[in-house]
Simulated scan of single mutants.
Amino acid sequence: MNSLEINASGNFESWSPSKIRELKENKISNDLGQNLLFENENLRIWEVVLLPNERLPFRKINMDYSWVSLTTGMAISRYADGKILLMRIEKGDSAFLSCKEKTYIYDLENKGDDILFFHLTEFKHQTIKKYLPADVRLKSKKPSNN
């Protein structure tokens, strides 16, 4: 995945009033995706399918998760601090995101001409850490520069 910051943190001038209102009214989901495919005491597996111009509303992320893209496309993501990222996503792109005891709020909107399709694995209560030796560090897959 390649990303480009198109709006800096702290700057809400380019934001639509409806997105600002959505944040102010605290209309924020705790669901990582649209469809919960599986859940047990350790993890949840989510599916996200976005048609062109469709948007996954703001969601509150406070647990580590990994994702994999099953399609190629373009998206933007707005963060609660004002930052906006434009992303070029390739089929097979994946990453592990660690919250490190913090909470992040952001949305995801398909800005391409094709469907975006993701699978996400959310690690409940940071349970993944108890299964790993202390010296193991999880890293995201680095995109190639081809």
Rank of each mutant, 00 (worst) to 15 (best):
T71D: 13
R59G: 03
R44G: 04
L37E: 01
L70V: 07
K129P: 01
S69C: 12
H119Y: 15
N53P: 04
K100Q: 08
S3Y: 00
L70I: 08
M63E: 14
Y65Q: 07
I128T: 09
R59Q: 04
S16M: 04
L132T: 06
R44N: 10
L86V: 00
N53D: 15
L23I: 03
V136P: 07
G112T: 09
C99A: 02
I28W: 03
S18C: 05
N40Q: 11
Y106L: 09
K139G: 03
C99T: 13
D135K: 09
K139S: 10
K139L: 15
F38T: 03
E39K: 10
N30T: 12
Y131H: 14
S144G: 08
Y104Q: 07
M87E: 12
D107W: 01
V49P: 00
Y131F: 14
F58S: 05
G73V: 06
N26E: 12
F123A: 07
S66W: 06
I28S: 02
L36Q: 05
K24W: 00
E109N: 09
S18Y: 12
I76W: 02
E39W: 00
W67Y: 15
E5F: 03
Q34K: 06
M1K: 01
I20Y: 03
I115T: 14
N26F: 02
F118M: 01
S140Y: 03
R44E: 15
H125F: 14
L97N: 11
L23G: 00
I76T: 15
N11F: 11
N110Y: 02
N145R: 06
T121D: 02
S18N: 10
D135R: 11
L32A: 04
E22T: 13
T71M: 08
I128M: 07
I76H: 09
D107I: 03
T127N: 14
I6S: 00
T72N: 10
N42H: 10
K102R: 14
R21P: 00
T103N: 10
L97H: 11
L85R: 08
M63A: 05
R21L: 12
L23F: 04
E109W: 02
S140G: 03
K100A: 06
V48T: 11
L138E: 06
E122S: 12
F123W: 15
L132S: 02
S66E: 12
R59F: 08
F117W: 14
I61D: 03
I84V: 14
M74I: 09
K141A: 05
V68I: 15
T71R: 14
R44C: 08
S144E: 10
Y65V: 12
L70N: 10
L85W: 04
N7K: 01
F123Y: 14
Q34T: 08
G33E: 05
K142E: 13
G112Y: 05
N7H: 00
R78D: 08
E90Q: 13
K139I: 13
G92D: 04
D107L: 05
K102S: 12
E5T: 13
L120V: 09
A75H: 03
E41V: 06
E41Y: 02
R88G: 05
L86Y: 01
D93E: 07
I6N: 00
D135Y: 09
E101C: 01
N53K: 15
N35Y: 04
D93Q: 09
G73T: 06
S144L: 11
L116M: 15
P17I: 02
Y65K: 08
K27C: 10
S98M: 05
M74L: 15
